[in-house]
């Protein structure tokens, strides 16, 4: 399916809008994984990472702690 055909046919379709939201979440999640790993490699503390992400230290450690 071409992008043009899809946006023409489904500009107002909630299904497409929701798929976009889901795609964004997954994309954000993957970017978070990459960015957190890099910050840790560069010597950032969990506290610093948590503050940058706007979440608690516990939350960020629970989610990413195993990777480094």
């Amino acid at each position: 399916m071409s992008t043009d055909a899809l946006s023409d046919a489904a500009g107002d379709d909630p299904a497409v809008g929701l798929r976009a939201v889901r795609s964004l979440r997954e994309l954000a999640d993957r970017l978070e994984t990459l960015q957190v790993a890099r910050a840790r490699q560069l010597g950032w503390s969990w506290q610093q990472v948590a503050e940058a992400l706007g979440v608690t230290k516990q939350a960020v450690h629970k989610k990413h702690g195993r990777s480094s």
Binding site: L6, V16, G17, A20, R22, S23, E26, R30, L31
Partner: peptide, 27 residues
């Protein structure tokens, strides 16, 4: 695809290929 739908993202103005390129440049 992990639920990442390039067409749906294009519909809200996000170019997945551009994001992919930038991610590869850094990571």
């Amino acid at each position: 695809s992990g639920g990442i739908d390039a067409d749906a993202l294009a519909g809200i103005g996000i170019d997945l290929e551009a994001v992919r390129r930038e991610a590869e440049r850094t990571f």
